[in-house]
Amino acid sequence: MTGMSLIVKTVARWLKGFILLVGIYFTLYGHIEHSGGFAGGVIIACAFILVFIAEGKQVETRLLSKNVASAFSSLGALLFLGTAAAGTFTAGIFFKNFITTVPAQYFRLLSSGTMLLLNISVAVMVSTTLFVVFVILSAIKIEVPLKPGGSDDDEKETNL
């Protein structure tokens, strides 16, 4: 499968950077604007999925391999847990926001302590996880099991 038409490929090539930019912005400014790591991660995953659909299945290894993506997913989860555990080591409380914010820093990017780190880890986790799930579900044919005495349309394969 070589993907979709040239028009779709070109538009996807032009758009993927902007979509990634929006996703990264949502992630980084999650503690200031009405967004967050989860929404940003979903948008980043949408950028990857757009390229994946447009270019076809063979782009998977070049774009973001399934193993690399699952490794990043684990990395995001570990980063989240590590940030939470860092509160234990520095302040003695799990999930303690150990970086204090002075009022002069309000509405800046580097404010509100560990929240930025947590947002980034959530975004990494969510984006790679959704991408891997999409890749798995789109790359695999699931056979509907044959039933004894079933009709003919039981035998066709469902391609998710």
Binding site: H34, S73, A77, F80, F95, T114, T129, V132
Partner: peptide
């Protein structure tokens, strides 16, 4: 918390255990 977005302050600071649970669910899903 220093975060103007109160939702983010709740889910990532006051109630961060919920988000940890969500992360765990996502990880188990993958």
């Amino acid at each position: 918390t220093g975060a103007p977005n109160i939702i983010c302050a709740v889910i990532l600071d006051f109630r961060a255990y919920d988000t940890l649970g969500e992360i765990t669910i996502l990880f188990c899903a993958i």
